[in-house]
Nucleic acid binder design. Structure first.
Lengths: 247, 247
DNA sequence: ACACCATTAGTGTATGACAATACGTCACTA
DNA sequence: TAGTGACGTATTGTCATACACTAATGGTGT
């Protein structure tokens, strides 16, 4: 038989409340930054208890639709990129995605980011990119710091692309991928050197507003990364091993 | 002065509770599918009230880390792709991302998906893809249904890629992008025709296990989509207008 | 005008209660 | 024996109420 079925869910009060607020946000009735009434007032507005309101608020909160800048102030919020990214990363970790999967996608996103950054990156952002690069060069010996700055470098490039979708999409992925750098450097000590060269080229290309060169170098850079992963034998390893998760 | 500061957040009990559960899940102590105790038991285990536990659970729930298959059963869960996707889509809508931004990224992801699908797509999935395509051809006159099946088609291709990162990454994006199809068909009636041709070619290429051809046609297909967007003058329009959101 | 203090309001948490209902058990029937 | 039905129980969703703590408010004195 091919009977489709699913538990029909009763509409719980806290869910209805959350849905209503969400709808009003999506529809524009409530605008980001706007202040919401206190819990008691919300409770009587919707004709439920404060506990119920609170459960709904907790959900909206962790969905990033509302937040409390200060404990007493509750306002409508724009979901933050980093929040969403860490959410996705977590999912990827739980799914045990492999370096291969991460890399295949990064091989498309990173060159695109570089290309767009070269095409339309704002000058102020370029300065910051250079700064990050300089710090990366300086941190040569500290692998952890190098990794952090590497991730930051690519994020900065992505932001220069002025494409928010791209930023949103690649962030969780790279959080995990570049983490792998720590694991490959022991086997591939020259990786740091090559990384610096590639980054320099990317910076140059962006400064010269040469999209094609930027794209090519980014592509080469990521491809190079793959070689590192291969040498370290991590291709089909889950991106984060149990031990690392422990931290 | 450049003193950085932020309200240091007290560790609220419900948050500590949620964090603890989350940590145990990430660390593998709690495995997906495993059953959790009831609320009362959790409450006394953690030495807090049931209300507190419930608030924490609401958060974990909307983060996709736990869920209730039936109202009485609470278990550890794997975050679901579609949940995450709709979360991201929502964020994109709120950010008013433009079709240009969506398209630029899709132009990278969709060809990759097609290529990988051709390279390593499992045969059963191919059958389903063909089925979707057939239904799409049949639905020629129903624009809404066409749009739905179009999205589904691309999702299926992505799933055939066997790359979960790619699936996760492209889903939210395409949810919005292909939605645009509804808006462009009035201006570009021949779009449906061209779409069917492209899809056929993609199916063929996948069946023939010809990655390059699959990639090329996917690329052409998305590029074609852009022409439609241009003709409809939507390039820099937010992907979903206020009116559409209303629904 | 400014610093200080008291008042107030709102949040986080706790206690306790109750209706609705999913689940397990057990007897009953075919 | 397997399936059905009834029943008791445990658990959830919701409610009401209370209290400590603290951020915001406003007034007071200098």
């Amino acid at each position: 038989m091919s009977l489709r079925s699913q538990h029909l869910k009763v509409n719980y009060a806290y869910r209805q409340f959350a849905d209503e607020i969400e709808a009003q946000i999506m529809q524009g009735t409530l605008k980001p930054g706007e202040r919401l009434p206190g819990e008691v007032e919300l409770a009587q507005l919707f004709g439920v208890t404060r506990s119920t309101v609170r459960e709904g608020l907790r959900q909206l909160e962790s969905e990033g639709l509302v937040h409390r800048p200060t404990p007493r102030r509750l306002e409508v919020a724009l979901p933050q990129t980093d929040k969403l990214a860490s959410r996705s990363s977590r999912a990827m970790v739980l799914m045990n995605v492999t370096f291969r999967e991460l890399w295949q996608v990064a091989l498309e996103t990173e060159p695109l980011a570089a290309e767009l950054a070269a095409r339309q990156g704002p000058p102020e952002a370029l300065a910051e990119l250079k700064d990050i690069h300089a710090r990366l060069v300086a941190a040569k010996d500290d692998v952890a710091e190098t990794t952090r700055l590497d991730t930051l470098f690519h994020t900065q490039v992505a932001e220069m692309s002025q494409n928010r979708v791209l930023c949103l999409v690649r962030e969780p992925l790279t959080l995990l991928l570049y983490q792998g750098f720590i694991q490959i450097t022991p086997s591939v000590p020259q990786a740091i050197e090559r990384q610096i060269v590639a980054h320099s080229q990317i910076v140059d290309a962006i400064e010269a507003k040469d999209p094609e060169r930027a794209r090519n170098w980014a592509h080469r850079h990521i491809q190079d990364f793959w070689r590192g992963i291969q040498i370290a034998g991590l291709q089909d390893e889950p991106s984060i091993s149990k031990e690392n998760r422990m931290k």
